[in-house]
């Protein structure tokens, strides 16, 4: 496959004068690999252990926020506008709504019983195919029983879109008062999740050289990073969904969305490479 990075443009802020031009010093001085280096001649010094004692400096890869314009013109529409986006592997479908469903917070409904008292969730679970439901800001993420191909989602996505639209247009509350009243402060979420990581998750993954780090908490939604042997491991998705999610939800029932921001192809020693 030919992959072409067609164009990149970066707009540099003029709000501060802290921008310095890149220095012209050779890349070797910075221990950085460079494509501008002269080719090594055949008479070059033979490699020795000493030559390789200093690996290239590794930069830390950071993630900039992705500016999403996923709803396009529908975002500002007065009508309820819903887009369904099934995951590539078909294991879940994200329904994006141009209305807030649970502003600033998230809630995970593990089954029909857990939806009791929350009109939106009750109606969504009225479909026998729905397995779990996660509501976060203006999205509803659904997993289902049955076929897991992307195309298998279309009939159910249409049904769920209609349900969400009807509930929103009815003006009734979306979630139960109990959920809203009992949401803990972020600091409590951070403390409780960190405790699960320290006492249960990390001791478990450490056996495989892995490590989980809690990187941020927003409302009751958490973001983690998988490091060490977990980074790039082919079983990382399984570890995340069947191990980490289960541990978090069992010990901290009010945790909502759990995101993984690991770059599984980067780092000094990704398992993947």
């Amino acid at each position: 496959m030919t992959s072409i990075l067609k164009t990149l443009s970066a707009l540099f802020s003029d709000s501060k004068s802290e921008i310095n031009m890149p220095s012209a010093k050779p890349a070797e001085e910075n221990n950085m690999p460079s494509t501008n280096q002269e080719p090594v001649s055949s008479t070059a010094e033979e490699p020795t252990a000493e030559n390789f004692s200093e690996p290239p400096a590794q930069r830390r890869i950071i993630q900039a926020p992705v500016l999403v314009e996923s709803l396009g013109e529908g975002q500002a529409s007065e009508k309820v506008f819903i887009k369904a986006e099934p995951a590539e592997n078909g294991d879940q479908c994200k329904l994006m709504v141009n209305r807030s469903l649970f502003a600033g917070y998230s809630w995970f409904f593990k089954d029909f019983e857990s939806a009791a008292g929350s009109p939106l969730a009750e109606k969504i679970f009225s479909s026998d195919l729905v397995d779990t439901l996660l509501i976060h800001n203006s999205t509803a993420i659904v997993t289902k029983f049955g076929g897991k191909m992307q195309g298998d989602w279309l009939p159910l996505a249409k049904e769920l879109g209609q349900i969400i639209r009807e509930v929103l247009e009815s003006g009734s509350p979306l979630l139960s008062d109990d959920i809203i009243k009992n949401l803990p402060p972020e600091e409590q979420v951070r403390k409780d999740i960190q405790k699960v990581i320290d006492t249960e998750v990390n001791p478990g993954v450490a056996a495989h050289g892995g490590k989980i780090v809690l990187t941020s908490v927003t409302g009751n939604s958490v973001t983690i990073q998988m490091g060490g042997g977990c980074q790039g491991c082919s079983a990382a998705d399984l570890t995340l969904k069947q191990g980490i999610h289960s541990s978090f939800r069992k010990a901290v029932p009010y945790v909502g969305a759990i995101y993984d921001e690991t770059d599984h192809a980067a780092g000094m020693n990704p398992y993947y490479s």
């Binding site: 443009s9 707009l11 802020s13 501060k16 802290e18 310095n20 910075n30 950085m32």
Partner: peptide
């Protein structure tokens, strides 16, 4: 950058 810092306001990529 090799030295100093860049404060980038926006990055747009066409693939």
């Amino acid at each position: 950058p090799e030295s100093g810092s860049w404060k980038i306001r926006k990055i747009h990529v066409d693939y």
